[in-house]
Computed example of a mutant assay.
Amino acid sequence: MSVEFEAVLKDLAGKLSQVESVMDIDALRREVAELEEEAARPDLWDDPAAAQKVTSQLSYKQADVRKVTDLRQRLDDLGVLHELAQAEGDAASKAEAESELAQLRTEIDTLEVRTLLSGEYDARNAVVTIRSEAGGVDAADWAEMLLRMYLRWAERHGYPTDVYDISYAEEAGIRSATFKVSAPYVYGTLSVEQGTHRLVRISPFDNQSRRQTSFAHVEVLPEVEEVDHVDVPEKDIRVDVYRSSGPGGQSVNTTDSAVRITHLPTGIVVSCQNEKSQLQNKAAAMKVLQAKLLQRKKEEERAEMDALRDGGSSWGNQMRSYVLHPYQLVKDLRTEHETGNPSAVLDGEIDGFLEAGIRWRKQQETAAA
């Protein structure tokens, strides 16, 4: 085995050992066994919501165990393959080993990033809201492009999404949209996307084909769970109902099933028109409201801590530029991670930015501590 190949293989083996330690694979296997017992109970589906939670947790934890086990086996097999290729002077097998080494490095690095998600809410589902900001119709169009980017990212990973509400702009694009992504650690992963995203391009809405800069804001919140106890008294909210509508104001529902909730003490407004039932829409809107109130509480606590530290790091404002003209570049302003392929990024290939953001945030937290 060549010295360089052996060194990389040894480094990956050590990195995977650290991942196995942080994930506590033995404990994970015990959790899988317990969930398998629970899933086998004959009365499991008497409570469909609880059953869904059990089966989802089981599926994700089984996938984690399989992933780590598979990576360990592939590392062991790779060492043998490379030794044989060198002993026999087999160029094709050696090339195959080099390719597998590169693939393993990518997969282990990605799994290592997962272990950096240790925040209080990181393991939860994510509730994402996108709003158009400065830039007029271009900003509304940009907000819709970002919505598609995140939905495509979720689709690429097989993560279920649920669009709660979309407010369409008059000419093109959207004023805002709120959706949920369901997967383990998806809040921790997407939370690094929070902030203002800037687009520079030749405006398709300008008859003089001038360059336009537009902005959209991304807000990422953890889904609220029962253990959070976010109390929202009825007297503190106003509930309005209206008919759901799509682009151009066309009615997509003949009943007043859409719900808008205003939280009177804070002025926070949320809405949901995704479900057919008014009760279902109200329940979904309340979840979003509770998530926003929980986030507000966290921000107040963080502000207090920043004051004690005599100032903190604010990285959630303008955080990424997407330039389509006069050159092609997407660059994160915090991590310096960049790519010259905006089309791929806007089609959901954002894992490189997510991983760089997670590593950067961990460094910031370590430095602050």
Score class of each variant (00 low, 15 high):
2 S>R: 15
3 V>W: 08
5 F>E: 04
5 F>H: 07
7 A>L: 11
7 A>N: 14
12 L>K: 05
16 L>Q: 04
17 S>L: 14
18 Q>H: 11
21 S>C: 08
24 D>L: 09
25 I>T: 14
27 A>L: 12
34 E>F: 04
37 E>L: 10
38 E>S: 12
40 A>M: 08
41 R>K: 15
41 R>P: 04
47 D>Q: 09
52 Q>Y: 03
53 K>D: 14
56 S>A: 15
63 A>Y: 03
64 D>T: 07
65 V>P: 06
65 V>R: 10
73 Q>Y: 03
74 R>K: 14
76 D>W: 01
80 V>L: 04
88 E>D: 11
91 A>R: 12
91 A>E: 15
91 A>W: 02
94 K>V: 00
97 A>R: 04
99 S>Y: 13
103 Q>T: 15
103 Q>P: 01
106 T>R: 15
114 R>W: 10
116 L>Q: 10
120 E>V: 14
121 Y>V: 01
121 Y>K: 04
124 R>N: 13
125 N>F: 02
127 V>L: 11
134 A>I: 06
134 A>Q: 08
136 G>W: 10
136 G>E: 09
136 G>K: 10
137 V>H: 06
143 A>V: 07
144 E>P: 00
146 L>M: 07
149 M>N: 04
150 Y>R: 05
150 Y>D: 13
151 L>R: 11
154 A>W: 07
154 A>C: 05
158 G>N: 09
164 Y>S: 05
170 E>A: 13
170 E>L: 07
175 R>W: 08
175 R>K: 15
176 S>M: 07
178 T>E: 12
183 A>C: 01
185 Y>V: 00
186 V>C: 15
188 G>S: 08
188 G>V: 04
189 T>Y: 09
193 E>T: 11
199 L>H: 12
200 V>G: 02
201 R>H: 00
205 F>E: 08
206 D>K: 06
206 D>A: 12
207 N>E: 15
209 S>M: 04
210 R>D: 03
212 Q>D: 08
218 V>K: 06
219 E>D: 12
223 E>H: 07
224 V>K: 04
224 V>P: 07
232 V>Y: 03
236 D>K: 08
239 V>Y: 05
249 G>D: 07
249 G>K: 01
250 Q>H: 14
254 T>F: 02
256 D>S: 09
257 S>G: 03
259 V>A: 07
260 R>I: 05
261 I>V: 15
262 T>I: 10
264 L>F: 02
270 V>K: 03
274 N>E: 14
276 K>Q: 13
280 Q>H: 13
281 N>G: 09
288 V>K: 05
292 K>E: 13
292 K>W: 01
293 L>V: 05
295 Q>A: 14
297 K>T: 13
297 K>Y: 10
298 K>Q: 15
302 R>S: 09
323 V>P: 05
325 H>I: 00
326 P>Y: 02
327 Y>E: 11
328 Q>M: 12
341 N>A: 05
341 N>H: 14
343 S>K: 14
344 A>T: 06
347 D>L: 00
366 T>C: 00
368 A>T: 06
